[in-house]
């Protein structure tokens, strides 16, 4: 038996909306520690890792580890039916190939029950080591989204360079070139407005912009984004979900032929 209650159905809806273009099917692994999902996009260039800790839920019960394979577009269709301030309860047991989403209005006057068919998904589960990165940049998530979208109109790839003074994003295309330089900014009223650059050694890597633009669909989930880079390693783009977990996106760098 699995049962979990979230104060805001809208949170899960937003999470699924932010990843469902990248991955259409995925398996949620449920255990006493929470709900986890790890999946690669169909071209195996990027990977999404979602972690929702059990202590971030209002109620969380998982008698034993349990896998729930879901089509994320179908899940999104159901989550869209939740009211803005509805609570969400998820229920599933191993006897049925279904997960139930219960949406309850704040005054308890409306209770909607949606049952989603579960599916068997065969996927590779990858071990992601907790690596030390050469550079870690935290910046407002809206700023990162603007940068990748702006550069996406110029070129297909972005070259990210981190030095101790700044982080540069550069793109080139048929119409010309663009460089956006962000300096460290610590003296802000709100901590989420900061741009923080931690550099062990300078890095310079190139990534496909369309994936980064896709990752930035998660912008509404967190005011700040953390970008972790090491030479010849996948970049990590992390959105922390306050009090419950994170969504991390991994993207392999472009390698020169």
């Amino acid at each position: 038996m699995f049962e979990a209650q979230m104060a805001q159905a809208a949170l899960l809806k937003q999470i699924i909306e932010s990843i469902r273009e990248l991955i259409t099917e995925a398996t949620f692994e449920v255990s006493g520690t929470g709900m986890m999902l790890q999946a690669m996009d169909s071209s195996h260039v990027s990977l999404v890792a979602l972690n929702l800790r059990s202590d971030g839920f209002q109620l969380f019960r998982a008698d034993r580890p349990f896998s729930m394979g879901m089509n994320l577009n179908h899940m999104a269709k159901m989550l869209k039916c939740a009211g803005k301030d509805d609570t969400l309860t998820m229920r599933a047991d191993e006897a049925n190939d279904l997960v139930t989403f219960l949406f309850e209005s704040p005054g308890n006057e409306r209770l909607a029950e949606f049952e989603l068919k579960l599916m068997d998904i065969t996927s590779e589960n990858l071990g992601i080591p907790d690596a030390e990165y050469s550079a870690t940049v935290s910046m407002p998530s809206a700023e990162f989204q603007r940068i990748v979208k702006d550069l996406g109109s110029i070129g297909d790839t972005v070259e990210i360079t981190v030095t101790k003074d700044d982080v540069r994003f550069a793109a080139s295309g048929d119409i010309g070139n663009a460089t956006i330089k962000c300096r460290q900014l610590l003296d802000t009223e709100k901590p989420e407005d900061r741009t923080l650059i931690e550099m062990v050694e300078p890095v310079n890597l190139t990534f496909a912009l369309r994936y980064l633009i896709n990752f930035s669909k998660a912008t509404s989930l967190a005011p700040s984004v953390t970008i972790k880079l090491s030479t010849e390693m996948p970049v990590v783009v992390e959105y922390k979900l306050s009090d419950i977990g994170y969504v991390r996106f991994y993207l392999a760098p472009k390698i020169e032929d």
């Binding site: 589960n125 990858l126 071990g127």
Partner: peptide
Amino acid sequence: PAGQPNIASFFTKR
């Protein structure tokens, strides 16, 4: 895609 390695090649299989 050309010049674009498989993400799985960076991680260990479980």
